[in-house]
């Protein structure tokens, strides 16, 4: 602490010495220097406010607005992207729904097709069966007719042989009809009409 005491003593001595000089030059303001200061500060102020500050301010403002614009642009782009994404999602959902719909419809269509085909087949089969039966019936009837006429002819022949007398056509026919009416063919027709009965 001796150091500081010495320093203090020195400064005190200087102050005293200054008093002897009639005011220390350390603290006495000089008018000339003040005028120099005013002049040079004035020049500095003028140049800086005319040249330097506006340019720096402009550059900073330009950058700030550029940054703001960039932020806004990126925000806009982000929103657009989000919108697009939403749109795509929506479309994807729709597409999926449509696909599901298509599958469902296809399944239904195939089921109905199968059912239709089955029923059609059944109908056709029945038709065929019916046709076959009709044919059989017709054939049976024809056969019966043939048998009947054969029997009639045979009967006529037999009668002629027995009676040696030929009958006229009208008698013949009448006789045959009478005879045939007595003959029961039901046993013969039995096979052909069994289904019908």
């Amino acid at each position: 602490m001796d150091l500081f005491a010495d320093m203090g003593a020195f400064l005190l001595a200087q102050a005293e010495g200054a008093e002897e000089e009639g005011g220390s030059f350390l603290v006495s303001p000089g008018l000339g220097l003040m005028i120099w200061t005013l002049l040079l500060f004035g020049i500095t102020l003028w140049v800086l406010s005319k040249v330097a500050f506006p340019r720096i301010g402009d550059a900073l403002e330009k950058r700030a607005s550029a940054i703001k614009e960039n932020i806004e642009a990126s925000e806009r782009r982000r929103q657009e992207a989000e919108q697009l994404l939403d749109e795509y999602r929506q479309r994807l959902r729709e597409a999926r729904e449509q696909a599901e719909d298509i599958v469902v419809r296809a399944r239904k269509a195939s089921e109905t097709a199968i059912a239709e085909a089955a029923s059609e087949g059944k109908a056709k089969r029945e038709e065929l069966v019916a046709a076959a039966r009709k044919d059989i019936e017709a054939e049976t009837r024809r056969s019966l007719e043939r048998i009947r006429s054969e029997v009639a002819d045979l009967t006529v022949l037999a009668t002629e042989k027995v009676t040696r007398k030929s009958l006229d056509d009208a008698d013949q026919k009448r006789l045959v009809q009478e005879a045939l009416a007595e003959v029961d063919f039901s046993a013969l027709a039995g096979n052909g009409t069994e289904d019908k009965a």
Binding site: G32, I35, I43, A59
Partner: peptide
């Protein structure tokens, strides 16, 4: 009025020149 150039005036000139020079150069 004593307008002599001395040490302080030189420093003022330097400060003035440096301030103007540096700021306008950067600007």
């Amino acid at each position: 009025i004593d307008l002599s150039i001395n040490k302080a005036v030189l420093y003022l000139l330097l400060a003035c020149g440096l301030t103007i020079g540096a700021m306008t150069f950067i600007a």
